[in-house]
């Protein structure tokens, strides 16, 4: 394709081709510290629906090795978001090496805290915030569970900050770590955050899953136990490749569920969430 950018996130390499230069320039600025793969795991394509649509009301179609049949295009101003969506899509549909959980993760002392829940539950913001407060950021979107060892592999892609989370993190980090503010995308306002240098430098170091939380934002502080069967079901729902992995996926997930301490956590604001996380970590982390 006309323009190309390559990046390795955790153990996964991507090749992104584009009909336009700008989204790739934005990507390469934000992913400056990440290595480029020789042979990528996945190819993503950002292309114009018709040749003239490269220039006239340009809209970005998202394609690649794995595609959804009816993915709607995005405006060129949201090209960076399109690239990220394309990369996520490859992971969601094509990843077979690891059990993929839709979860965020941070690490301390070689042990990992996993957070999963519906979008809007705050797992992404919480992981980004913890990443600035003494934890190693391992990823805000996907956690990769090793099918043999059960270890967690980092996938520290750019953090995709949405709406209110943008202000929270603007107060927390240097502005040169933030991408362009994209207003009125299909998901609302979006701004990407470059993970801390250490998170990138150590992204090939796995960690042992030590605590699993189901956070829920916007409720009074509450901490509940969750039954094993419910945890299992919630994690299968949070995984895009559990079924496709067959017995290896079953083995990895059932082992995780039987060994990891788990709690559901409600919190009214991010500061109280950080406090709850620290307390639960001290009490429970294995």
């Amino acid at each position: 394709m006309k323009h190309e950018f390559r990046v390795t996130v955790g153990p996964v390499g991507f090749r992104i081709g584009s009909d336009w230069k700008r989204p790739l320039d934005q990507l390469s600025a934000l992913y400056a510290d990440y290595p480029a793969p020789d042979i990528p795991d996945f190819t993503v394509r950002l292309f114009a629906q018709r040749p003239w649509r490269r220039f006239i009301r340009p809209s970005v179609m998202i394609g690649g090795d794995y595609m959804l049949p009816d993915a709607a295009p995005l405006s060129l101003a949201h090209g960076l978001l399109a690239a990220e969506m394309g990369m996520n899509l490859q992971m969601a549909l094509g990843q077979r090496r690891y059990l993929l959980l839709h979860a965020s993760a941070v690490e301390r002392d070689g042990r990992a805290l996993l957070m999963t829940g519906h979008s809007g539950a705050g797992k992404s913001t919480l992981s980004a915030l913890l990443g600035e407060r003494g934890w190693r950021f391992m990823g805000d979107e996907f956690a990769l569970i090793d099918l043999d060892s059960g270890a967690l592999h980092a996938f520290p892609r750019l953090v995709s900050l949405k709406n209110e989370a943008i202000a929270v993190m603007e107060g927390e980090v240097q502005s040169d770590r933030l991408g362009p503010l994209m207003r009125d995308t299909p998901k609302g306002d979006i701004r990407h955050l470059r993970p801390p240098k250490e998170a990138v430098a150590r992204m090939r170091e796995p960690a042992k899953p030590a605590l699993l939380l189901f956070p829920r934002f916007g409720h009074a502080v509450d901490i509940r136990k969750v039954g094993e069967a419910e945890i299992f079901v919630r994690l299968t729902q949070a995984s895009t490749n559990y079924v496709a992995l067959g017995e290896a996926g079953f083995d990895a997930l059932s082992s995780l569920v039987r060994t990891i301490p788990t709690r559901a956590v409600d919190y009214p604001d991010t500061e109280s969430a950080v406090a709850s996380v620290e307390r639960l970590w001290a009490e429970l982390a294995e």
Binding site: I39, R96, A244, G246
Partner: peptide, 21 residues
């Protein structure tokens, strides 16, 4: 086979086995 290619091939064979089953 380069290591990455060998990995992707293993993954693809696993996917095909899943499809078969």
């Amino acid at each position: 086979l380069p290591e990455k290619v060998a990995q992707l091939c293993t993954d693809a064979r696993q996917s095909a086995e899943h499809a078969r089953r």
